[in-house]
Structures are given as structure tokens and as C-alpha cells.
């Protein structure tokens, strides 16, 4: 099971050989981590995303059969960040028992990445969740609706510029203090 290909660095090499024109910028998720146990992330531009993902799923040397997680981070004011939204795909190969994190960075005003529902069926709900929470549009998604908040909600609560106390309902009521009660 853990014979050839169990290290993620060989996956990066396979990717570079197949797509020499893309700068994957591979690196450990935690920069100070090194060695075979490090969790490796690569960057993929949005316009090549589906092509690269399909290759990662189907190539016998990579075989990422499962999309373990799909999420997003709003890098607003993050130290050293150049792009605002990073859509993060956690891939897992059950055959080779290795993992890879693929990051796709997009920006305002219309953050949009292609949907990977055609590659992994399980991307359907996580993409809806990211759409709901961050307002990132997934081009080609079969059913892109809000999933956790109600359909009339007009904000994206996990964006960094959305306050923790919320916006809307609560503001319409006067704040009752000991003096005004």
C-alpha cells in the first residue's frame, strides 16, 4: 500500500512534468515544516483548475480519488498575502495513501472558480457552502444555492469584513441598557 508514490514530493514532480507551464509553487502548509511528513500545498490558477484536478484524480501515479474537503480562507489583512480568497481543496489518494492540498486564489470584485463537481461528485455541497459563506461563484455547478443560511440572506458571514456579532436583524432593535429600560 505504501510502496511507490507514497510521498507527496513525487506527486509534485509528476505535476511539473505534465504541466511545465504552470507555476505550482509547492510548499509546506506550515512553512517551518520539512521532511516527508510535511503537508504539501500547490497553487493552481483558476483557468486550469479542472484540467489539473482531473489529471490528479485519473493519473495512476497520483490517484486522488477522494476530495476530502473543500473550503476557503479569506486572506484579507493576512501577513504577506497577495490575493484575497484562497479556495483550498484537500485531496486524498486511498490507493497510495497520500494527501495534497490544492489552492486556487481569486479576488474581488467577482471571485469565481470553476466547479469540480464533474471531477468529484462530493464537491457539490462544500462548493455551495463556500458560495454561501464567502460569496465565491462556482462556474458550472449544477445547483448553486445557499446551503446553511436562508435564501434571502444577502451577506457572506465568514468573510473577514463581516462582524462576529452579525449584521441585520439585531441592528433593527434598540439596545436596551440599564438606563433606557
Amino acid at each position: 500500500m505504501k510502496a511507490w508514490g507514497s510521498s507527496t514530493s513525487s506527486v509534485v514532480q509528476v505535476l511539473r512534468d505534465r504541466f511545465p507551464e504552470i507555476d505550482f509553487a509547492p510548499g509546506a502548509l506550515r512553512p517551518d515544516e520539512a521532511g516527508p511528513a510535511a503537508q504539501i500545498g500547490v497553487r493552481v490558477p483558476a483557468d486550469r483548475l479542472v484540467e489539473v484536478m482531473r489529471f490528479l484524480r485519473d493519473d495512476p501515479r497520483t490517484r486522488f480519488e477522494q476530495l476530502v474537503d473543500l473550503t476557503c480562507v479569506d486572506y484579507l489583512n493576512f501577513p504577506g498575502a497577495r490575493d484575497r480568497y484562497g479556495v483550498i481543496y484537500s485531496l486524498l489518494s486511498i490507493t497510495w495513501n497520500h494527501r495534497l492540498w490544492v489552492k486556487c486564489f481569486v479576488n474581488d470584485p467577482d471571485p469565481c472558480v470553476p466547479s469540480v463537481c464533474g471531477v468529484w461528485k462530493g464537491a457539490e455541497w462544500p462548493e455551495r457552502e463556500v458560495y454561501d459563506m464567502f460569496g465565491i461563484r462556482f462556474e458550472g455547478h449544477p445547483d448553486l444555492r445557499r446551503i446553511l443560511t436562508w435564501e434571502g440572506f444577502d451577506a457572506h458571514p465568514l468573510r473577514k469584513d463581516y462582524p462576529v456579532t452579525g449584521r441585520g436583524e439585531r441592528e433593527r432593535f434598540a439596545r436596551v441598557t440599564r438606563e433606557t429600560a
Binding site: D32, G41, R99
Partner: peptide, 9 residues
């Protein structure tokens, strides 16, 4: 903590 990201499962 160090600046960075990690996944634990």
C-alpha cells in the same frame, strides 16, 4: 503559534 496552516484529522 507560527504563521502557517495545518490540517489534522
Amino acid at each position: 503559534p507560527p504563521v502557517g496552516e495545518a490540517y489534522g484529522a
